[in-house]
Amino acid sequence: MIDALRYEYVRLRTIGSTYWLIGSALVFQLVFAVLIALSLASSSTFGGGDETFEILATIGGSTGAPLLMAYIVGLLGVFSTGHEYRHGMIRATLTAIPHRTHVFVAKVVSIAVLAALTSVMCVLIALLAIAMFGLDMPSGSAFVEVSAGIVLFVTLFALSGLAFAAILRNQTAAVAVLMLVPSLFEFIIQSVVVLIKTNSSDPQGEGGITVILRYLPYDAGSQMFVQSSVSGFVQRAIGAEPFGAVGGGVVMGVFVALLLGGAYALFVRRDA
């Protein structure tokens, strides 16, 4: 296992995409955190430190916008297995480390650690922006809750990218799926459910088809850091109460675990 981790460590250190993806995530975070902090510093109506931190740490993601860092770091997950198939590396990899379980687990561990570290750095950048502009610091509990939510979501998001690439064995398709499922497919499903529900005999009643909305994995996972969003208002208006941070995290965690399980099963059974 240590051998496989050593391989992943050198693999990640010696490929340019590791640096430009992490660099991009951090630069975006810094630029947008500074811009938002600048705007908040001149606003007299904005809320306290908790809300400020939520907005800055997620670059607006706490209001329902896509969590940009997750999409960027997610590509690291896709490339982790996608490069193996796109460039015919998989056979060289498996002749260096024939234990497929070790190879797969090492990829999962290395991407999880990298995604978590990157998201922690993004959170620290938010704190830096708060300090730079003299804004109110968050309370300890809010800091821990939001930070944990962000780190968990980004990590699970990146692992789902790894799993998509391992299942599809096609890097381009995996990138497309990772980008489109959270941002488009889930939105389409939400729209269709809302349309059906609002045209039903009981547009505000609980249960029924709206239950689906609680189990959309990425939307559910975002409950770990979203405080209030348009999507949430709409869902509640049609009788769908989203899971909270814990429930949403569990839904996303189970989804990613199932994806990884499927990817692993295929990885060990398929021809390289």
């Binding site: 010696t14 490929i15 460039h87």
Partner: peptide, 15 residues
């Protein structure tokens, strides 16, 4: 069997 942008020596170091 290698990534096109990983330097030759690094490719071997990785293996």
């Amino acid at each position: 069997p290698f990534h096109p942008t990983r330097k030759a020596r690094n490719h071997l170091r990785m293996l």
